[in-house]
Structures are given as C-alpha cells and as structure tokens.
Design a protein around this nucleic acid. Structure first.
Lengths: 147, 147
DNA sequence: AAAGTTTACTTGCACTTTGCAACCTACCCC
DNA sequence: GGGGTAGGTTGCAAAGTGCAAGTAAACTTT
C-alpha cells in the first residue's frame, strides 16, 4: 500500500522503522519465519511474554502493512493461521543481520557454533528460510534460545 | 556491557530489539553512518523532526549500549561530537537490509538506480561506510531523501 | 565587559502507548 | 448442552512521547 501521506520522510530506513520499529513486530515475524508459529496462542507463549492486546494490535498492523495475512483454518473455524507474505519473508535478511550483530556484540543464548555456521553461509540459510515458507513447511529452523 | 539481567529472552533478535527497537535510535545511527552527522543540532534538524528530549534520551541510551561515544570538540567546548563505536558501525548491514527492503516494497524517495547499484555491490558499499568511519571522513555517502 | 547567539540539553504538560488482569464470545468435543 | 479452548476485547494504571518553553555554559560581537 504505497503512496501513504503523513510519512516522516521518504528515507527507506525511516519508512521501515515506521512499519516495524518497535519492540514486538519483528519478534512476531521471527516466530513465523524461523519457528513456524502460526496462531495467536503460539505467539502469546513465545517466551518474551507479549500482552494479548499488544499482540492483537501488532498482528493487525502487520496485516495492514502487507507483511502478514490471516486465513481461517478449515478444520477449526476459531483458529486463524497467520502467515508471512512475500513482503514479509523478504524481511529475513534484516532479521539475520540483527541476529549476527547481537550474537557478536551482546551476550545471548545463541550457541557460537550455530552463529558461526550461519555467518559463513548466509545465502544458504536465507534460501532454506525461503524454501520452508514457500512449501509451508512448519518445521522450526532454529531453536528457542530459552534463557 | 553483557551479562545484563532483566532480558526478555536470550534470543539475539530480542536482545537487539531491546537496544534499538524503537522509531528513532536507528535513524540517529543512520545519520552518523551515512550522512556524517556528529552534533545534537544536526540530528535535531535531520528531517524527521525528533523532539529534543527524545533525542537526548536516545543519545544517552546509545552511549550506554556502547554503540555511540561522545567527545568534547577541542575548538568549541560547548560542542559534543557523537561518534559510532565499532559496535555501532557493525549495525551497517542491518540498516542496509532495511533500506533495500523498503526500497523494494514501499514507496520511498530513494532513486531506483542508486538502490540497484547498492544491491549489486553490498560488500563494496559496506566497505566504503566502514572506511569513512575509520578515517573519520565526514562526507555523506548518501543524500537526504527529502520528500 | 555587556549583550547577544549558539549548543546541548531539561522541564512541564497534554496525549498516546504499553502492560497486566479480567472478561467475553465463538467454536469444538463429548 | 456443558466444559474446555482459541482468539480476542475492555478497563485501568504506568510509562513513554511530542511540543513548547526555559536554562546554563561557551563562544562572538560590539
């Protein structure tokens, strides 16, 4: 949905930050992308403890931005399946660089071996993320990093 | 400054978002990185219209996170020069991917030719950003994208 | 040296966003 | 049709944000 008025500026970085520059949006994208989460309940129990009103708000905004789509599950009409769009899966490089940066400069629970492996093979990792998305493969590609 | 308690989780993405997951922090980093801005006044008039209390707060937090350092200018003691640390300049790939994503999926003021050129030569662009930082070259590497 | 300007803030206040708990309403299963 | 589950909404207190104004120190001009 381009052509929005009311933008702070036309700088792409600024535009990005207006869409997902907060503490939660990219975590939801991460869960969809690498952990295969699809439902409200999965995101809610994702480990970081997001409040349900914030979660509902972010899912709404991500849908409005065209990053996520929701579809009703055919076996259970209560259940919504949230899924990344192509625009959403294209955020993979952003998340990957954030992961590499934090693993290098902050103390995280990500095992060094895993990070090293990903860093050496960025393109392969991104290709695998994209393949899983395309084939709707719900298997998580990365563990949960519980602290 | 690793070893902080009170983290939501040990996931590197979550850790990153706790440090710079807001609408302003990365814009300040962008201004330092690609426009050569150094002083409070330059950030204030950067185009997006940040409030001065927020700017002061973000500069403080970025310093506390070790992403930015401040040093008094020798010619004018009023003037503080804010500068990225190595940890800060290492955010370049994150910003670059955000720039590419938004240029591809949103309507921005970035000229297509420029984006295409950068996308084809990511490593060269990152090397140039890093060179300018290392040599304290204040020449902006990218224009201001005024809308 | 008095007056004005610039720089980097701080303060006050209205407004918005967030976090937490509780509640609500379909929908499924038995 | 009763109980549990999924995906929310609502209310309220606390925190964060945006804007205008003010401040203190360091220069600059007269």
């Amino acid at each position: 949905m381009p052509g929005k008025s009311g933008r702070r500026s036309g700088c792409p970085v600024s535009v990005s930050l207006e869409l997902f520059g907060d503490r939660w949006s990219l975590l939801i994208v991460r869960d969809m992308m690498v952990r295969g989460f699809r439902t409200f309940g999965e995101f809610r129990e994702s480990g970081e403890g997001i409040a349900t009103n914030i979660l509902a708000d972010r899912l709404r905004k991500l849908q409005h931005a065209g990053i996520v789509v929701a579809e009703v599950e055919e076996t259970d009409a209560r259940r919504l399946n949230y899924r990344l769009t192509e625009k959403g899966i294209d955020l993979a490089p952003v998340l990957l660089e954030m992961l590499i940066w934090a693993a290098r400069h902050e103390e995280t629970s990500a095992p060094c071996a895993l990070i090293e492996q990903i860093e050496k093979n960025r393109e392969g990792f991104l290709a695998e993320v994209r393949r899983r998305w395309k084939e709707r493969d719900p298997a998580p590609i990365m563990p949960r990093f519980t602290q």
